[in-house]
């Protein structure tokens, strides 16, 4: 296993955000963490790369205790793409070169430049390399951010909602790229997401979080409508389209009528709404 998360808890002041979160992830695996807003997904990612220090529990990168590692050591093993980055007047090549920060001392070596060029070619960003970030679209920027994380040569890639604010084409491109890189280079990838269907399509494993805890963990094929309903409070159906599981929200009245009286009360409880 590359990353082992063991019983991690986190509190903001006295308010518990994460409660006893445990999971493991191996090489060539892509894990999607799903759950409603404010459930602790981003906090979990920040606890995994030292930005936040867990209140309890352990995180191991291979067999090393992350909580005992210095920030620079962590940066050599885990790369993080936050939800939002500030955009400055800096060329994409230099922005990606920044990813070599954990490996460079006083000055950049030719090897660092060559590695940046290699990742630019891998992601097909040659046409953008000398363009300033403040002249780029959202999709282009996200690709640059991912390239910056990859040039760190990490063992684990952490991505916080990598496809938020992207159009459909860019979403698919970015997720396909992440999957290709993670599975092709012996890395582990963890991404938080809101788009369940994209998670089911691209991830090897899916974790559902509810109230700061892991509610369910499964391969995409094992996800059930009940899990989704319990986490989001929304009745859904899961259909298979061209071999991919697709989650479809179900009209609550329709669901209630077809399921009969026994299910009716359960749905009402889960959704927190009334039907007339």
């Amino acid at each position: 296993m590359i990353l082992t998360v063991d019983d991690v808890t986190f509190r903001y002041n006295s308010h518990p955000v994460l409660k006893n979160v445990s999971f493991r992830i191996g090489s060539n695996e892509l894990l999607a963490i799903l759950g409603p807003n404010g459930v602790g997904k981003t906090t979990l990612l920040k606890c995994l790369n030292g930005i936040l220090r867990p209140s309890g529990g352990c995180v191991y990168v291979e067999d090393r205790d992350l909580l005992r590692m210095r920030q620079m050591e962590i940066a050599r093993d885990l790369a993080y793409v936050p939800q939002q980055n500030q955009v400055g007047r800096i060329a994409a090549f230099d922005a990606i070169l920044l990813g070599r920060r954990p490996h460079i001392g006083w000055r950049v070596t030719e090897s660092d430049l060559c590695k940046v060029e290699a990742i630019i070619r891998t992601l097909g960003l040659e046409h953008l390399s000398l363009r300033n970030l403040d002249e780029m679209s959202g999709g282009e920027l996200q690709k640059v951010n991912i390239a910056r994380a990859l040039v760190q040569e990490p063992r684990v890639l952490l991505l916080d909602e990598p496809t938020s604010s992207l159009d459909l084409k860019n979403q698919q491109e970015i997720l396909a790229t992440i999957r290709h890189i993670v599975t092709g280079h012996g890395m582990a990838g963890i991404m938080t997401m809101h788009d369940i269907n994209s998670a089911l399509r691209f991830a090897d494993k899916v974790i559902f979080m509810k109230d700061g805890e892991i509610y369910a963990a499964s391969e995409p094929a094992g996800i059930t409508p009940e899990m989704v309903r319990a986490v989001y409070g929304l009745p859904v159906a899961i259909e298979s389209i061209r071999g991919c599981p697709v989650v479809v929200p179900v009209d609550q009245k329709e669901e209630a009528c077809s399921s009969g009286t026994r299910h009716r009360s359960k749905i009402l409880q889960a959704s927190g709404e009334r039907l007339y």
Partner: peptide, 15 residues
Amino acid sequence: NAIDAGDETAMSLGV
């Protein structure tokens, strides 16, 4: 340069 990219990015780069 790292802080210019955002505090979280800078921290994730070991700064």
